[in-house]
């Protein structure tokens, strides 16, 4: 099962179906939280998650597709697009060097 230590995360990929709508929004809110820690946040369609992605955030309805596109990556599913506990979890893990698991 893919896992990664928060302090090794350099880039977080936010994925949605088209890579044009909700992922852009989530990425822009996340960017302001994570850029102080030197983490880049990008958005893509869920079918085009880059092969070097280590941490992927996407809605739980798309998580299976995300994991099969990027088997190497830690996929963190979330339920709602704003204020979801998953966002806090990722932020905390990066800040405190905790382990993230798919």
């Amino acid at each position: 099962m893919p896992s990664i230590n928060g302090s090794d995360v350099k880039k977080v990929v936010v994925a949605c179906d088209a890579g044009m709508g909700s992922s852009v929004m989530v990425a822009s809110t996340l960017r302001s939280k994570l850029s102080p820690h030197g983490v880049e946040v990008v958005h893509t369609p869920v079918n085009e998650i880059p092969g070097d992605a280590t941490v992927v955030l996407c809605h739980q309805g798309l998580a299976a597709r995300a994991q099969s596109t990027a088997p190497q990556a830690v996929v963190v599913p979330f339920a709602i697009f704003m204020g979801d506990p998953a966002f806090t979890k990722v932020e905390q893990a990066i800040k405190n060097g905790e382990t993230l698991e798919s």
Binding site: Q60, A63, A64, A66, Q67, V75, P77, A79, I80, D84, P85, A86, S102
Partner: peptide, 15 residues
């Protein structure tokens, strides 16, 4: 309540 949001909907496919 924080647990509600994730518990309220069907379990995600990959955790």
């Amino acid at each position: 309540t924080a647990a509600d949001a994730s518990a309220a909907s069907p379990t995600p496919a990959t955790v």
